[in-house]
Amino acid sequence: MTALGFLYPGHSAEDDYPRIEQLLGSDIRLDVVHTDIGTDAHRVDALREMGSAERLAAGVDELRMVGAESVVWACTSGSFVYGWEGAHEQVRTLAVTAGMPASSTSFAFVHALRELGVHKVAVGATYPEDIAELFADFLRAGGVEVTSVRGAGIVTAAEVATWGEAEIHLLAREADAPDAEALLLPDTALHTAAHIPALEKELGKPVLTANQVTVWEGLRLADRRVNAPMMGSLFTREPLVQV
């Protein structure tokens, strides 16, 4: 049994995790601990507070007790808002505090794109435009070319969590760009685990979503690979040979 730990802010789309656990169909356990969200707002000040070392540290004891082998801060905006170097410091501090390998959803996107060999992406974010642009800046710092950015202007995770299949597909269609090799949907408050194959079929390209890549990152940290076609292209490809 491989136990993966996730620090998830508040309560919005955490039910993606038991769904993903079931879809993995293997000896993988996903342990989710909820952190204090503080102010539910896609604003820089609120997001930086949400991702503070103190808030993340509050959840690591529970993950250690359940035997987690790795921990991922399951929040995209609460990591990329610190910038590339600040987000690195965030996960370094988390790793030391937790005593296990650590990462965040923002880095999960960058690592997943490298896994797929994708260099050009379109972004469909639920966030306001200014926050969506900060995510694009983060991706660029990681060597990714962002061809287009679409922000839906939603301020709270609570509202994002109410979105269903129709809203998700509409955002994906509006955000996609012909020259993009993949589409990214970066909000962990968005329920996407059930929709990835349909999104990829509609767009004809890999679709990476926040909770999907977060779980993949936990597996990567634990040196596990799982073939799970219902989780999209990311979970069906052979690893790229690094030269």
Rank of each mutant, 00 (worst) to 15 (best):
L219C: 09
K205S: 04
I196D: 01
E217N: 12
M231N: 07
E200W: 13
M231R: 07
A194N: 13
T236I: 00
T236K: 01
A210G: 12
R237C: 09
V213F: 03
M230P: 00
M231T: 04
L221A: 02
V241D: 06
R224E: 14
V226Q: 08
A198L: 08
M230T: 13
L240A: 14
P206V: 11
A222R: 05
H191G: 01
T214N: 09
R225V: 11
Q212E: 11
L208V: 09
H195D: 14
I196Q: 00
T209Y: 05
A228H: 06
L203V: 03
V213A: 05
K201P: 00
L208K: 11
R220I: 01
T209N: 03
F235A: 01
R225S: 13
E202D: 15
V241I: 11
K205Y: 08
A198D: 15
V207M: 02
M230W: 05
T236A: 14
V215D: 09
A193Q: 10
V213N: 03
D223Q: 13
P197A: 02
L234T: 05
A189L: 04
E238A: 12
D223F: 00
M231F: 07
L199W: 10
H195K: 00
T192C: 13
P239E: 14
V215I: 13
E217I: 01
E202H: 03
P206R: 12
G204K: 13
A194I: 03
R224C: 04
L221R: 02
P197K: 03
E202Y: 04
L234R: 05
G232I: 06
P197E: 07
P239M: 02
D223H: 11
L219K: 07
A210Q: 09
V241S: 09
R220N: 13
K201F: 04
P206M: 09
T214Y: 04
L190Y: 06
P229V: 00
K201R: 15
D223T: 02
A194S: 15
S233D: 09
Q212H: 07
A198N: 10
G232Y: 02
L221M: 10
G232N: 07
M231D: 04
